[in-house]
């Protein structure tokens, strides 16, 4: 009984110390941001029902999207390679093949009408000061603007992969990958690092990456960090709420709101777990067996003690 009391005292002091230096201290050091579950409540709802066929005509024609963006699935190639595009726009404009699958519909609509507002970078791109966002706003081709925008969103959704086909790699590469490298996943801002036979090919590729990064630094102010193990340095909750709105944590940051939907955000986090915590499934599996082994070991240890001490009392 006395031993039990001692154990209780030791446990209470240990837990109190743990609580103070871990959950409590971290709650005091870091701002807590509640997730909005990617609702984007500040953006207006889509009022019109989109027509994908009319949307296709606008995207390929009147709205001029393909002047800068490629659409691989529709056979529209990129007007320039990634390095040249970054030199012109600051960052390579994304391929639109899966935009409809990874971005929230309300966000896409707002992005087409008012990019700086949708991306929450109006502090950096202020029209009144002549600071133009590299993506030109769409003012309509003469019809009802909201209807035209809804049509374009409907088109992008119609060509994109189905939600169940959206892989972590598609999500990351579309949403994050043009600014953030992930060298544990062999990803650079201009694509996956190929396997090279000759060193000069490898060096030529590195030069391309460096040139792209130079443009990015000019555009963003600093090189966006490599996200290889952000899952361990920042944690899932931080990444989720940061993606929803970077201004939550870094007021005035050049990083735009990326406007992912909930499913795509989960896939991005899955990608980050694959690069930064690759052995998590194995850890859980092995953990189970080790715990079972330790419990059996403890039972035998207790029985042995009882047997030895029977003669001592």
């Amino acid at each position: 009984m006395k031993e039990l009391l001692i154990l209780v005292v030791v446990t209470i002091f240990t837990l109190a110390t743990y609580y103070l230096v871990e959950p409590f201290a971290h709650s005091q050091m870091h701002k807590h941001v509640e997730s909005e579950h990617f609702a984007y409540n500040d953006l207006p709802k889509l009022t019109a029902t989109g027509d994908a066929t009319r949307g296709a005509e606008l995207v390929m024609g009147g709205a001029g999207c393909t002047g800068c963006h490629s659409i691989d699935v529709a056979g529209m190639p990129a007007p320039m390679d990634a390095v040249t595009a970054a030199a012109s726009y600051g960052v390579n404009p994304p391929d639109l093949s899966n935009a409809g699958a990874v971005y929230d519909a309300k966000f896409l609509a707002e992005l087409i009408k008012n990019p700086a507002h949708a991306l929450l970078v109006e502090h950096k791109f202020d029209m009144d000061k002549g600071q133009m966002h590299p993506m030109v706003a769409f003012y309509g081709t003469g019809g009802d603007l909201d209807q035209e925008v809804a049509d374009m969103v409907a088109y992008l959704q119609s060509i994109a992969v189905k939600p169940e086909e959206l892989t972590p790699a598609i999500a990351y590469e579309t949403v994050c990958g043009r600014c953030h490298a992930n060298h544990y996943a062999k990803w650079t801002q201009i694509g996956t690092t190929p396997t090279f036979k000759y060193e000069k090919e490898s060096l030529a590729f590195q030069i391309q990456v460096l040139e792209y990064q130079d443009s990015l630094v000019k555009y963003m102010g600093t090189l966006p960090p490599d996200l290889s193990i952000y899952i361990r340095s920042r944690g899932e909750h931080y990444i989720e709420t940061f993606m929803e709105n970077p201004q939550n944590y870094l007021k005035g940051t050049a990083m735009p709101r990326v406007g992912v939907n909930k499913h795509a955000a989960e896939q991005v986090i899955e990608y980050l777990k694959d690069s930064g915590d690759a052995k998590r499934h194995e850890r859980e599996e092995v953990g189970k067996y080790v715990m079972i082994f330790m419990v059996i070991f403890a039972i035998f240890a207790i029985l042995w003690k009882k047997q030895v001490w029977r003669d001592l009392h």
Partner: peptide
């Protein structure tokens, strides 16, 4: 034998921390 009993119970706690 008493040491090992305490060690065994401690190791349950230890490996819980290692894995989870």
């Amino acid at each position: 034998s008493k040491d090992m009993m305490v060690v065994a119970i401690y190791l349950i706690f230890f490996f819980y921390l290692v894995f989870y």
